[in-house]
Write a protein that binds this DNA or RNA. Sequence first.
DNA 1: CGCCATTTTGAGTAACTTCAAACTATGTGG
DNA 2: CCACATAGTTTGAAGTTACTCAAAATGGCG
Lengths: 257, 257
Amino acid sequence: MTGEKNESAHVATYLIRKLERYARLSPSEKAALQRLGALGVRSLRPREDVVREGDRPRVVNIVLDGFACRYKTLEDGRRQIVGFFMPGDICDPRVFILKQMDHSIASVGPLTIAEVGGEAMIAVTSESPRIAQAMWWATMVEEAIAREWILNVGQRSAVERMAHLLCELFLRLRAVGLTDGQSCDLPMTQVDLADATGLSSVHVNRTVQDLRASGLIVWKGKRLTIPNLRALQNVGMFNPNYLHLDNEGDIYDANDW
Amino acid sequence: MTGEKNESAHVATYLIRKLERYARLSPSEKAALQRLGALGVRSLRPREDVVREGDRPRVVNIVLDGFACRYKTLEDGRRQIVGFFMPGDICDPRVFILKQMDHSIASVGPLTIAEVGGEAMIAVTSESPRIAQAMWWATMVEEAIAREWILNVGQRSAVERMAHLLCELFLRLRAVGLTDGQSCDLPMTQVDLADATGLSSVHVNRTVQDLRASGLIVWKGKRLTIPNLRALQNVGMFNPNYLHLDNEGDIYDANDW
DNA sequence: CGCCATTTTGAGTAACTTCAAACTATGTGG
DNA sequence: CCACATAGTTTGAAGTTACTCAAAATGGCG
């Protein structure tokens, strides 16, 4: 029950934790983010669309709880997941600039999101340059993740790809405090992983079995354990630099508490 | 000799053309962009690195003339091109926020770029909200392109992939006025295309030959002709929506000329 | 002309796909 | 608590696409 305790008390907890990966925020900045996250809260069941390709984006979606994914489809039904969203992730702080969505967003497991109007997003960033910077940072990290995925799908073998993806998910979850030692919740099915890695679900299954057999992962019923993260990283040739998790904007840390 | 005439007279011609895909700019805004592009101009020979993974980003690079690419490599040498830059493209208007590059940028053919300091970038966007918006727009388009590449590499077959990539390059070039009817300059080698599509260069060669045999492309010595763009788009299941080229910000058009 | 980069060809192979069926969990209603 | 339905995982076997290796041909350039 990921984050249920926090959800009621602090809607934007993960958002704040995420942005604080870039720079520490002042209490008033945190309060502003809390207000953002509390605006319009929406709950979805697994596998529901949040926005569909072709829609005119009306609001900025911020993930409060659960997982979502961006995906694109080809005319003939082939589907590619092009990114995962987890608590704290902002689905493009400036989407509303665009006339139409070029991809869809859907829930993976059960999902809670905040819907924030464009004006509110602009307001929060124009009031705090540090938040504005943090939004740019988050956007660049997203782009970096997309590029790493191109590398993943373009060059890595099936085992490498799976290992890499699992490392990424684990580290991103850990960055917002959603891991529990070596374990974390993972609501996605093998079919989802297939769509995300560009492999067939059959091959994903065999690959997962390989990783299990090597003792690199323990994965049962929506719960993933990585006994030796370093080892899994090696298999996936995972270099975490693209996640830019090391408090890069520490120069911008708030000093007004 | 792509853009040589313009280069001396109007350094930032393509940058302006590109941003005007989003919203028409006022003369003073254009002048500001001209000044940006004229700051530090740098020329590179083919296959030289502009920035390397691990570097601390110092400046924002803006392509004035020629092609560049972003690429990432794996420990064992496998290389993936994760995006191409062409004249008018900005290599991340806010890179300097990050502590280190998570990828490298290199010239493809001969390349001319402008190096713009972070302060100048901030200045130009804070002076004109329309330019600021246009920078966000350009960034989102870049991300959209990256996502489309994930789809390309993850789901499309070799022929589809090649067709799709060529359509993208052609349309992006056309958007800044660098096509000549059905033709355009393309400095990349088949090895580059292989690195960009995640295929082996041998297979790229065979795929290109297929496309040639079907009359879909004429490609000889750095010059590409697409006799029937619609047909090539169909083969690649190319939907241009992700390029957001249709003057999406027309509401923001300047009315002060 | 000669050198080097690039493209092209051939042949054998590996990685992953497809299809189809069986098995296992999970949740629901009686 | 069982029976059933449904979603998800697992297995087997055969097929394909694209890869590798290696060599030959072509092209561009000084």
